[in-house]
């Protein structure tokens, strides 16, 4: 009876979200009274397994053959199913990133189990572990239990501080399996190139909404971001207008973020946007409409035209 953490790799690199999942596994391990193993599948799996052996896992399994070199839900799901079957894990967790959200429900389907998305905590219950997860765009926290054979879940990265290397020496083992017929192929990435920190890793985020208006407004937000060493985010309105790439969207259906400082520029504060940023430590809103709902979640609100206030802010923080 133990936990399997599914690490996330892309282009041979370990994704940092994995460290939050390891942290969550330790919390769950305390509650459930068990340890955890890790599966690192994909090109570079052996090197990543080596990188992960100091984090307190019993065993770090890796697989890096041709079939799993590139991530597909089909191949990685079949591999994880084989490992779960082999070792009899009671809990399986991955990050609630786009990859985890693609993979974990597939694995649940393969195992004929139910699962929980976006776990932010867990506690001991009568029959087993009670999981906490947001629902309704974060307007409710649900306490949920699963009654199948395996508790599968994705974990919200912002709810768990990344685990640190504790100098332990986990065993490292190769694990390969017959994956059956694979009817899907990875073709290529078309990733957004940016020198700014990524949204989920930044301690400061400055986000643009429809109120920044145009390319000129976006350029001003970018300058502010660079001055602050911040990541840039956006509302759906701005993404839809094609002013910024889609992976900058913050919200219920975009990125969930919780930086030390979140500055919302020209964002109205729709339920779906607030769902993605309301756990930020300090929220600043700049909006010309004093009635805008964003002010209900802002620690500091400035009622002003962004073009003017943004330019002044840039001067003042230089």
């Amino acid at each position: 009876m133990s936990i399997l953490v599914i690490a996330e790799l892309r282009e041979s690199e370990l994704k940092s979200a994995t460290f939050s999942v390891i942290a969550a596994a330790k919390v769950l391990g305390e509650v459930a009274g068990c340890g955890f193993d890790i599966l690192a599948a994909g090109a570079g799996g052996a090197a990543v397994a080596d990188q992960l052996k100091g984090y307190g896992a019993g065993t770090v399994y890796f697989s890096e053959g041709a079939e799993v070199a590139d991530y597909t839900a089909e191949a990685h799901g079949a591999l994880a199913k084989a490992l779960v079957g082999d070792k009899g894990y009671k809990y399986v967790m991955a990050a609630a990133t786009t990859t985890g959200k693609d993979l974990m429900p597939r694995l649940a389907g393969l195992l004929d189990e139910a699962m929980i998305s976006d776990v932010i905590g867990c506690e001991k219950g009568d029959g087993g572990v009670v999981y906490l997860r947001p629902m309704y765009a974060g307007n409710a926290i649900a306490k949920v239990v699963l009654s199948g054979n395996v508790d599968l879940m994705t974990v919200r990265e912002t709810a768990f501080d990344p685990a640190q290397d504790e100098g332990s020496a986990s065993g490292v083992e190769q694990f390969d399996a017959d994956l059956g017929e694979l009817k899907a192929r990875f073709i290529e990435f078309r990733l957004t190139k940016s020198d700014r920190p990524s949204l989920t890793e930044a301690s400061v985020i400055i986000s643009a909404g429809r109120g920044v208006k145009d390319a000129e407004g976006i350029a001003l937000v970018e300058k502010l971001a660079d001055q602050l060493g911040a990541a840039m985010g956006a509302s759906r309105a701005v993404v839809d207008e094609g002013l910024v790439p889609n992976d900058l969207q913050v919200g219920q259906t975009g990125k969930i973020v919780a930086p030390d400082l979140y500055i919302a520029c020209g964002i109205s504060g729709a339920i779906q946007h607030v769902a993605g940023m309301k756990d930020s430590k300090v929220i600043v809103a700049i909006n010309k409409d004093e009635e805008a709902p964003i002010f209900e979640v802002a620690d500091y609100g400035l009622v002003a035209d962004f073009a003017k206030a943004g330019a002044e802010l840039l001067e003042k923080i230089k």
């Binding site: 139910a114 009670v130 926290i141 699963l146 009654s147 929220i283 979640v297 620690d299 500091y300 400035l302």
Partner: peptide, 25 residues
Amino acid sequence: RTKVLGLIEPEARAAGQIVGSVDEL
């Protein structure tokens, strides 16, 4: 196999303040 035991309100944010100028911000 999924049982929701109950829903609770998320922690509310403390009331914020409106600042008068960029300087004050």
